[in-house]
Design a protein around this nucleic acid. Structure first.
Lengths: 167, 167
DNA sequence: TATTGTTATACTCTATAACTATA
DNA sequence: TATAGTTATAGAGTATAACAATA
């Protein structure tokens, strides 16, 4: 009957995963709002740019990593630019592209928010987690993430005059 | 310096967890919209009520399990009631309370959406996951979820004239 | 006085489509 | 013709505060 469905153990693991994700994100969201007046998405933009170091990233690449639509990312970039946290510049390589980099103010805010962020995550997720469990978690979810990443990103969806190839 | 922070392994596991959660939710969100015109939150309401069987649940209890604020849940409940998927009735035990139950139409929609939902989750999360990994995932995240649940729910926040006890 | 639920309001966010400019 | 980015528009979702009713 339910031959192709999920068994009880799979269903339970799925629900647990989503619930942990939701509860964690909620706590993190409160912390980011309180410490830096940032939404989770805005923090993710700053953190991604911070990780990139001196490298400036393209709008589309950032959108694919972080948000869903290009327009949504344009909106967020405008918000962050208004606050002086990021800067947008035309790409030297491709006149169509815009590259984004962290400003000093953006780096400062990131540094101010990060300790509390890390503390919330540590307290809720890792405080009581044995080392073996931590290793297992990474080992299990890493391949899943890689598979999910392989799916075509949101920005690759056809738009405007462009049409799907498969018909 | 970064003595109380997260080590590299913890940070990587945290990022992986959130990325998997985001990507999974995005795929699930598309499926629910296509198959039943439901948002993830709305699906969660219907699924929770479906799990409860014949038991009707209180508004506040549903809000605590699923959404964030009571007003947010009132909004969602109104949406679902408009479509005839749930019904709200005064509680027989407490005149202040409202209990919510699934209508036949709600149950039908849930049944229509569930197979595709399960299929998406299976394909993205479990298809290539060894049995041992599945067991490990549940074993690691279960306790984390229980700890997160122990934190006071959103609806318990002071509001109106009510004030915090700790001051 | 506390709790339950709703509503008015204001705001943030998101996606679609239309647009410009460059490859 | 395809790609990169922006913007106008419109809609969904969210939270805060104020409200009415019951415990």
């Amino acid at each position: 009957m339910t031959s192709r469905g999920l068994d009880d153990q799979q269903l339970a693991a799925y629900f647990t995963l989503t619930e942990v994700g939701n509860l964690l994100q909620q706590a993190v969201s409160d912390q980011l709002r309180a410490d830096g007046d940032l939404s989770p998405v805005q923090f993710q933009v700053l953190a991604t740019l911070g990780d990139a170091g001196a490298t400036a990233l393209r709008m589309t690449d950032l959108a694919d990593r972080i948000v869903y639509s290009r327009s949504g990312f344009s909106y967020q970039a405008a918000q962050l630019e208004k606050r002086g946290l990021i800067a947008r510049e035309p790409s030297p390589h491709d006149e169509r592209s815009t590259v984004v980099r962290l400003t000093d103010a953006g780096r400062d805010l990131l540094a101010r928010v990060m300790p509390g962020h890390v503390e919330v995550v540590r307290g809720l997720l890792f405080e009581h987690m044995p080392a073996a469990d931590l290793a297992a978690l990474g080992a299990v979810l890493g391949p899943v993430r890689d598979r999910l990443r392989a799916a075509p990103p949101r920005s690759a969806r056809p738009r405007g005059t462009a049409r799907r190839a498969d018909r």
